[in-house]
Write a protein that binds this DNA or RNA. Structure first.
Length: 274
DNA sequence: AAATGAACCTGTTTGC
DNA sequence: TGCAAACAGGTTCATT
């Protein structure tokens, strides 16, 4: 489900309802995520107030008053929703954070690629999950010069490069295809063969497509929803992702093609993208 | 160092 | 209709 826009939409939707609320009881129903849940550490949040919601890459950081941060990652199929405290358990509900307001923050992840852990707020930058991460694409530090510099000495296909979190974070399989389409760059093109000027175009396309998707509430392919259960609408704005066989939306006369790159479906217009 | 592929899981869709 | 294969938004680790 979630790339950067979906996590950012989630963060924004939860910020107002969660700030100032307090963790009362943390319930671990199934400790089986990719990294096993540590019930003791998670329960250490009990009694702490929510003082901030931040996003780093595709991770959500929920800062608590005791100097600890709840870190959540939704993997492929994770869902985080605010429900009534008396709402029944649902299938694959791994975690429930019962709040002083009587609500519950529900974390469920059928495929178990997600993560949930607690770290001290002060140590987050040094945490092994974050220390290797590259630039935030919506920050001022992200531009064509930066991308071109990082591409130096590399030869990988540009789509792989864009999806490399040590280069730039938050760009997943959907938005990589979309940004390349908007840039007119073929997803298989080696970064060694991209002219300096085209990196400016690419950086701007990444920034724009992510920004547009956030504005539209994210992409809901199956059932992405924000913390209050609202679906996104960006899926209707996708130019190429999931549109194999359809005509290129630019009207060039080409047909959108689907290929596999590193075992990930990749969509592009063979006519517009070179 | 960089690139590639496999592994981790379950649920849903596709194809025979 | 039924079943099996293919596929799905991510990250990390091992191997070249």
């Amino acid at each position: 489900m979630p790339e950067l826009p979906e996590v950012e939409v989630l963060r924004r939707s939860l910020e107002r309802p969660l700030l100032g609320d307090r963790f009362e009881t943390v319930r671990v129903h199934f400790p089986t995520l990719r990294e096993p849940l540590c019930e003791r550490r998670l329960r250490s949040l009990e009694g702490q107030e929510v003082v901030g919601l931040r996003r780093r890459a595709k991770y959500l950081w929920i800062d608590a008053s005791g100097g600890e941060t709840l870190v959540l990652h939704l993997g492929m199929s994770g869902r985080l929703t605010l429900v009534d405290g008396r709402a029944p358990l649902v299938a694959h509900e791994h975690l429930g954070f019962e709040l002083a307001s009587g609500r519950r923050l529900r974390f469920r992840d059928p495929r178990r690629f997600g993560m949930a852990f607690v770290a001290s707020t002060e140590s987050l930058a040094r945490d092994r999950h974050f220390r290797h991460l590259g630039v935030e694409p919506l920050s001022t530090g992200f531009d064509g010069a930066r991308l071109a510099g990082l591409a130096g000495g590399r030869t990988a296909p540009v789509k792989n490069f864009l999806m490399d979190a040590s280069v730039v974070v938050g760009v997943g399989n959907i938005y990589a295809s979309e940004a390349l389409y908007r840039s007119g760059i073929h997803p298989r093109r080696s970064v060694a063969r991209i002219a300096r000027r085209r990196f400016d175009v690419l950086a701007e396309a990444v920034r724009d497509v992510l920004g547009d998707a956030i504005e539209q509430g994210g992409t809901t392919l199956n059932d992405f929803a924000d913390g209050e259960g609202n679906s996104g609408y960006f899926q209707v704005s996708l130019d190429v992702y999931g549109r194999a066989g359809e005509p290129c939306p630019a009207g060039c006369g080409g047909t959108i093609r689907r290929v596999s790159l590193s075992n990930r479906s990749t969509y592009y217009c063979p006519r517009c993208q070179r």
